[in-house]
């Protein structure tokens, strides 16, 4: 064949997505910064047994109510003399898994509903969307509380409840994008080649859904942490004596007048975590939108 040398050129390695991720981090400082923040949070959760100066559960009545910056207790101690810094570090081991599990429940439940609904259309779409509407009719936290009340209090059930609250968000998002993609000519082109529906979904719809989903995941991770803290504050999430940020605010609230740091310190931990996730989501959304790309 006349173009044989050119075929050799085509066999060179093909550039693939990992490079694109690195380029994204290099080209967008906000993405890189928020990515580092979230990475630090995960490191803290993983390394908290090593990093904690004290046992988070060790009670010592002698050193209770120590204010922050006390030598040996950087963030002070609570009413039972437990080191706050250690409890905050250990609390990350509760909050971050909550973010993971709740987002996973929402993503898989909602994603599946949205995919089926958008792809099948017709009566299937109608029924599934009315179900989603019913879930959306309740304010998120009220729904989560109702689900936990039905399943019984505890961290695992709280995670599931928060995930269920996220289901309609993902269902609507995925359905909207699938409806849009279904009309695109490249999807029609794939059908015209004789592709099966499964191939169309796996090879074309899901890869093109990734951008909006990545953004939604980081946004709802922030919501999940906040919701878990709220449920624990109400006594429906992590149970005593597990160090949990929401639980800490709950017990600290009683001492707000004389020892406000008992509530402020875990509050700040929640704020920083939620802010990091939201920042990551915001910056990713901007970086991945071709219209905003310079």
């Amino acid at each position: 064949m006349s173009n044989a040398p050119a075929i050799v050129a085509a066999q060179e390695p093909i550039r693939r997505t990992p490079v694109a991720v690195l380029e994204l981090l290099r080209g967008h400082r906000r993405v890189a910064a928020s990515f580092v923040l979230v990475a630090i949070l995960f490191l803290v959760a993983v390394l908290s047994p090593v990093m904690s100066p004290h046992d988070p559960l060790a009670v010592s009545p002698d050193s209770s109510y120590l204010p922050p910056l006390t030598p040996g207790h950087v963030l002070g101690t609570d009413e039972l003399g437990r080191d706050l810094l250690s409890r905050i570090l250990w609390g990350a081991r509760v909050s971050l898994p909550v973010a993971f599990v709740a987002v996973a429940v929402g993503l898989f439940g909602g994603g599946l509903i949205g995919l089926v609904s958008g792809y099948a259309g017709g009566i299937t779409d109608l029924l599934l969307m009315r179900l989603v509407d019913a879930l959306l009719a309740f304010p998120g936290l009220i729904l989560a509380i109702a689900v936990v009340a039905a399943l019984g209090p505890g961290l695992r059930n709280a995670m599931i409840a928060i995930g269920i609250v996220a289901v309609p968000v993902y269902a609507r998002l995925v359905r909207a994008v699938v409806l849009q993609l279904k009309q695109m000519e490249f999807v029609v082109a794939t059908r015209s080649l004789g592709a099966t529906p499964l191939r169309l979904i796996l090879r074309h719809l899901i890869p093109n859904l990734l951008n909006p989903i990545i953004v939604q995941v980081s946004l709802s991770a922030g919501f999940a942490i906040l919701a878990e803290a709220t449920l624990s504050f109400l006594g429906l999430g992590a149970q005593l004596p597990t160090p949990d940020w929401g639980q800490m605010i709950n017990s600290g609230a009683s001492f707000l007048n004389n020892d406000p740091w008992l509530a402020i310190v875990p509050g700040a931990a929640i704020s920083i975590t939620v802010y990091s996730f939201n920042l990551l989501g915001d910056s990713l959304r901007d970086a991945l939108d071709p219209r905003l790309r310079s």
């Binding site: 000519e185 490249f186 029609v188 082109a189 015209s192 004789g194 090879r203 074309h204 890869p207």
Partner: peptide
């Protein structure tokens, strides 16, 4: 049977999957 027929589209920006 689709093997024997094909289609070429109007909009060359919408007709190729951006992720492939």
């Amino acid at each position: 049977t689709r093997r024997e027929m094909a289609i070429i589209f109007q909009d060359p920006f919408a007709s190729l999957d951006p992720r492939q």
